[in-house]
């Protein structure tokens, strides 16, 4: 990237960016855009736009796992791995949540309505020295998150959307729901998570996308 190191000075982030963040970008001649109303603008992270649809994104074919073959497990840095069958999972206390979701491909959807089991509930009584979670899924998808982003009422394993069972193309029978991070962290077709001491990049995180993915800091890609 053509970096010039200033003598003796450690390289700072700002020096890598030839254009300062506060510099006015070039005006796109004739572009006015569709301005957001004030009510929702503080709920839409930078670079996002609001959609009423629910677009589908996935890297491969949609898996169709039968419920009797479905289970959810917590493995890795735990004393005893935990496993729930679908029936056992559905017998856990559930929560209904209404949240805004933000996809790295720029769309945001406000007030999406989900039902799921809080990750706090799943982790209850589990002792771990791990500080990171690597959710894994049917189809081989993985993603990575700090465990603290999954606890404290911030994340769910969701099985219903808008009052209906979650459709396979949207991640059914169950997907992770971590609305405060870009939506690729909300892994579809989730089957469990491995707890780990180190932060190992998952699928998109090894394919150019940010290791953490905070939409409010616009952490879309490597180096953001």
């Amino acid at each position: 990237m053509g970096l010039t190191l200033v003598t003796g000075e450690p390289l700072r982030e700002s020096q890598q960016d030839p254009k300062k963040e506060d510099e006015m970008p070039p005006i796109s001649r004739g572009f006015r855009g569709r301005h957001r109303d004030d009510a929702s603008s503080d709920r839409v992270p930078p670079g996002q736009y609001v959609t009423e649809d629910f677009p589908v994104l996935s890297a491969g074919p949609t898996p169709h796992t039968r419920l009797e073959q479905w289970d959810f497990s917590i493995t890795g840095e735990v004393d005893n791995p935990h496993r729930w069958s679908w029936e056992e999972f559905r017998a856990l206390p559930t929560e209904a949540v209404t949240v805004d979701i933000h996809c790295v491909t720029k769309w945001s959807k406000l007030d999406s309505v989900w039902e799921g089991v809080s990750v706090d509930t799943l982790l209850e009584g589990i002792e771990t020295s791990g500080e990171y979670a690597l959710p894994f899924c049917d189809g081989g998808y993985t993603t990575n998150l700090p465990l603290e982003d999954l606890t404290g009422g911030k994340a769910w394993v969701a099985f219903a959307y808008d009052g209906e069972p979650l459709e396979p193309e949207h991640g059914g029978p169950a997907r992770l729901l971590v609305p405060h991070l870009y939506f690729w962290k909300s892994a579809k077709w989730v089957r469990g998570m491995r707890l780990a001491v180190t932060n190992e990049p998952g699928f998109w995180e090894t394919n150019g996308y940010h290791i953490y993915g905070d939409p409010w800091k616009e952490q879309r890609y490597w180096g953001d």
Binding site: M1, I27, S28, R32
Partner: peptide, 25 residues
Amino acid sequence: WPGHRAGQHVDVRLTAEDGYQAERT
């Protein structure tokens, strides 16, 4: 432009005179 591999995408950003911006991929 750093070059690309066929199949990749790019983010586009437009800026209106009042500073309003829109991005798409």
